[in-house]
Design a protein around this nucleic acid. Sequence first.
RNA 1: GCCCUGGUGGUGUAGCCCGGCCUAGCAUCAGCGGCUGUCGCCCGCUGGACGCGGGUUCAAAUCCCGCCCAGGGCGCCA
Length: 437
Amino acid sequence: MTIPSEWRRTHLSKEINPSLSGSRVVVLGMILSVRRQGGLCFIILQDGCGMIQVTAHKDKIPSQIFDKLVELKPHSYIGVKGIVKAIEKAPRGVEVEAEDLYVFSEPKKLPPFEMFAKTLPSLDKRLEIRAVDLRRPKSQAIFKLKHQVLQSIRNFLVERNFIEVNTPKIISSATEGGATLFPLLYYDKEAFLAQSPQLYKEQLSSVFERVFEIGPVFRAEKFKTPRHLSEITSVDVEMAFADYRDVMNLLEEMIDYVIRNLIDKCSEELQLLEVKFEEAKTPFKRITYDEAYNILKDLGVEVSWGEDFSTLALKKLGQINKGFYFITDWPTISKPFYIKPKDDNSEISESFDLMYGSLELSSGGSRISSRDLLVKRLKQQGLNPKLFDYHLRIYDYGMPPHAGLGLGLERLMMAITGISNIREVTLFPRDQSRLTP
RNA sequence: GCCCUGGUGGUGUAGCCCGGCCUAGCAUCAGCGGCUGUCGCCCGCUGGACGCGGGUUCAAAUCCCGCCCAGGGCGCCA
């Protein structure tokens, strides 16, 4: 539809403030709520960046405009032309007193949830019409925060001379073994959706020294938990002439930077979601795998040295350690083939996981930069070095020491918002049973 | 792959264990009416539900079996 020229927006909701009092404006947006009080009507109009209260007085405007306005339902997309009034009783001390109305769209039906409801339908029901669910201010706030987190991460890394790269998501073989990949047909060959940009970013660190990628990764494990998805956003960082201690320091600084930025720029969203950041003080605690192992043993939790901690074990650790903390120096056997064993003890690796309570947010470490050692480690892990030839051949031409990390963006959002279901912090989550929307 | 829990109007729930007093309660919502400073408004009236199939019983929302769907846990998992 062509938008009539007199119904072009003059101001966004957030631009309307008491100093504009008396000016005539056109605001466009979607109705969140309509409340009528006799001859007075209050409408909360939401646009892309906030909301503004619109009022209509029966005795000040033509009756057909007033009558139309009061019968409008939430989810109607409208334009309102009116005068800005600075009024203390209005939210933010300002409102638009309507003179004219333009209706772009009215809903044929109402969604199964209310815009400000205290009780919500199950997430499953809401996901069926996710874009409508996102009209709820609280739902939107999550993704405005996520956007700001992404912006902050980019700013932080770029300020430190990292460059952003993009690597293939269609790959020929298992990146690191272990995880189940999604197979697909690539012309007449078998291919897979990438589980990680790991090997590509390592190669690129030999060129640009500092690289990062923010993009989707895919896992075909049949998870059915509130913290796993089949498709997630991974923040991958790799840097040359660095080891795992440098990476941990970088990650810690980055999270601190991200949180400071949120406090600075997203106070409304944080308030709406009741986020406090009480458990986000740097420096983050660092405990070694062996220390964690002994703590768990003393608690009577079943642990076997060399293995990843079980869900139960992580829960116990999370009870002891609130907020962010590192678990460092993992047994080499528990880590992927490219993680560097310690020079003085090859049983232990230069590696870390960043935890938030019992939730694993990130893992990383120093990487092996010798081809021979990589081949040895591949064999130890039961992987066929021939399948990795496209990667290993690069090492013949020299490779600086390097280290890096992978961070699950959605997991970070769970930690930041305190939301316990990863689907809630993902616009269109993919899991075992959900391929739409 | 295995185990556990749940499914009641559009939505969220009570009732189920211990069958009858359920003509299924409450809140929200929707429809109609009233209200000129609301902001999760308020007031009055009206409306709407036991996941699907089978069984037991004089009687099933309630007990049993199967199926479907959802949630959670284990295993597994940068």
